[in-house]
């Protein structure tokens, strides 16, 4: 997995300027690092039978038909082209945070993640769309599987900037209403909002039949709180600052963080929502694997 670490390592990605280049780098590196195509076996749909001719791969012989007819037919597959996946990227102010040990801010990390997923989706002819939000949806690229969609998505991602505070729940509700066809919804956010609102929104998406995958993004410092002495913490989503003795608050802070994550993880699992937390110092491979696993669960192979 050493090579895997390299292509999706945030340190490496940070050195690449173009978002598309980053996405390509991630996805192609991810693909090349594996012996079999990740699409193979579940990203295609059965289409028809044809006669077997020498040289065909015997794995695709339909042995059931052979048993009934004693003639060898070969199963033919067509690629699944109607997976609709809506990518939701949180651009709230808190996403702009970059700790001392992180290679990039959470927002950049989220952009890379969404770009890589979009790249992967469009490459296998799925339809992908994008919604960028903070308190509300700031911009949206409708679902499409056309060749120009990738450019539109990447342009929208590149233009995204950290905005106001987060209101994930409301946005999820709105997306559930606007995105009615059953598909997949992938959320990349730091989810720094009321967990009950968030969970209700996610539940709404699930209720609409969407497969939901949540990438909960953290900066490593947000889970370590590596501060000492008196500090004044300035809110990235406002102008207020809170002063305190950091060593005294660390314990309570970490407890709050853990409770938040545990609650989301537990409730997501209960609602059959895929929930993954990621720190921005971790390779994006984990995110892609999660995506592929989720897609397989949502749309299992028909072979």
């Amino acid at each position: 997995m050493a090579t895997t670490s390299n292509y999706s390592d945030p340190e490496v990605l940070a050195s690449l300027a173009s978002l598309e280049l980053r996405a390509r780098h991630i996805v192609e590196g991810f693909t090349a690092g594996r012996q079999k195509s990740p699409y193979h076996g579940f990203s295609v749909e059965f289409a028809e039978h044809r006669d077997y001719t020498p040289g065909d791969d015997p794995r695709y012989v339909d042995w059931k038909v052979f048993g009934r007819t004693e003639r060898m037919y070969l199963k033919r597959f067509t690629e699944e082209t109607n997976l609709e996946c809506m990518l939701l990227l949180d651009t709230s102010g808190s996403m702009a945070y970059q700790g001392a040990s992180a290679a990039m801010p959470k927002l950049e990390y989220g952009k890379c993640l969404v770009a890589a997923l979009a790249f992967m989706l469009l490459r296998q002819s799925d339809r992908a769309g994008l919604a960028i939000f903070d308190r509300r949806i700031r911009s949206m690229v409708p679902l499409s599987g056309k060749g120009s969609q990738r450019t539109r998505l990447f342009q929208a991602l590149a233009a995204a900037e950290a905005g106001e505070s987060t209101a994930c729940g409301a946005v999820f509700h709105e997306m559930a209403e606007r995105f009615s066809r059953r598909g997949m919804v992938i959320v990349a956010s730091d989810l720094l909002a009321d967990p009950h609102d968030i969970l209700q929104g996610l539940h709404h998406l699930r209720f609409q039949g969407h497969e939901v995958l949540v990438f909960h993004l953290f900066d490593p410092d947000e889970l370590k709180f590596p501060f000492e002495g008196p500090m004044a913490f300035r809110d990235l989503e406002g102008t207020a600052a809170i002063g305190m003795e950091s060593s005294l608050i660390r314990s309570a802070y970490l407890e709050a963080a853990r409770n938040h994550i545990e609650l989301l993880e537990k409730e997501c699992r209960r609602r059959d929502v895929d929930y993954v937390w990621l720190t921005t110092d971790r390779p994006l491979e984990h995110a892609l694997l999660e995506f592929l696993a989720a897609r397989q669960r949502a749309f299992p192979s028909t072979r």
Binding site: K106, L192, P230, A232, F233, L236, A241, Y253, A256
Partner: peptide
Amino acid sequence: RKETAWGAMFFLRQA
């Protein structure tokens, strides 16, 4: 006090 920008104010306020 050393001032720093901070994202996870949600946790901080809860704490």
